[in-house]
């Protein structure tokens, strides 16, 4: 009996989705990210309440926690990718689904499908919180700007998750993956921003920054949201293709 390509793809999707859903650490991580983000939103709101007003203030405070929130999504990417290498599960996975390129692409797609709603809810809750806390001071909020920022934030977090997953696939162990990713996002990137402001715009996280920061708020030499999205997407796709290339080739 020949299994059609579509059916095979559907089965890989179903299996990968079930894997994500039955891993308690993933659920725990998302819940922790949600709650910590609210705590941070509260902190930013109470720190930012003095004076500021309008859509800009609400968005700024609501999205100010993004820098911290991305950690939660980096961890999500690392956890979901490295879970294959715990207890030798990768052997089972590859003996059941030996089509490596297809498998990894499907796996990342499933991860994206799970991340998009999670990122939307988590980032949205932060904005919503600051909106409710600051609405007295806000004079007529522009719903369009809020929606485009929120979409950008969701996209950025999803791309970050996929990029982290791709790097974790290459490294296979969670500790080195965490060290590499966190040092990049929290040490290397801020440092280069001070030294090479011109180039650092094109780095994946800085480019992603423009996905959710409305153009009018950003500095003069900033990228537009579209440019940011394009750059961020290309970075992610580049890392994913590298990961798939390596994954297909190497010994499991």
């Amino acid at each position: 009996m020949k299994v059609s390509f579509n059916r095979r793809l559907l089965r890989i999707f179903a299996a990968e989705l079930e894997k994500l859903a039955t891993l308690p650490t993933i659920r725990f991580n998302l819940m922790a990210a949600f709650m910590l983000n609210l705590v941070l939103a509260a902190a930013f709101t109470s720190a930012g309440l003095q004076g500021a007003a309008g859509t800009q203030a609400i968005l700024n405070t609501g999205l100010a926690s993004m820098e911290y929130l991305q950690t939660g999504f980096i961890v999500l990417g690392v956890l979901s990718a490295c879970s294959e290498y715990t207890g030798g599960q990768i052997r089972t996975t590859l003996t059941v689904m030996p089509w490596r390129g297809l498998l990894l692409s499907a796996k990342l797609l499933v991860l994206a499908l799970v991340t998009v709603p999670a990122a939307f809810i988590i980032a949205g809750s932060g904005i919503l919180y600051s909106f409710f806390m600051m609405k007295e001071t806000a004079a007529g909020i522009e719903i369009g700007t809020v929606i485009s920022s929120l979409t950008g934030a969701t996209g950025y977090l999803t791309l970050t998750t996929l990029l982290s997953a791709a790097i974790s696939i290459v490294l296979r162990r969670s500790t080195p993956a965490m060290v590499v990713l966190l040092s990049y996002y929290f040490i290397v990137s801020p440092l280069t921003m001070g030294i090479l402001p011109g180039i650092s715009h094109y780095f994946p996280d800085r480019a992603g920054y423009y996905m959710y920061t409305p153009f009018t708020f950003a500095e003069a030499d900033a990228l537009t949201a579209l440019q940011g999205t394009g750059l961020s997407l290309s970075w992610t796709l580049m890392f994913i293709s590298a990961a798939i290339g390596l994954y297909r080739r190497r010994d499991a």
Partner: peptide, 17 residues
Amino acid sequence: GIVPLAVLIMNSSFVSI
């Protein structure tokens, strides 16, 4: 290692909580 790495590296960085 994931939780302590995430918390401590983030907190020792330029954007400390």
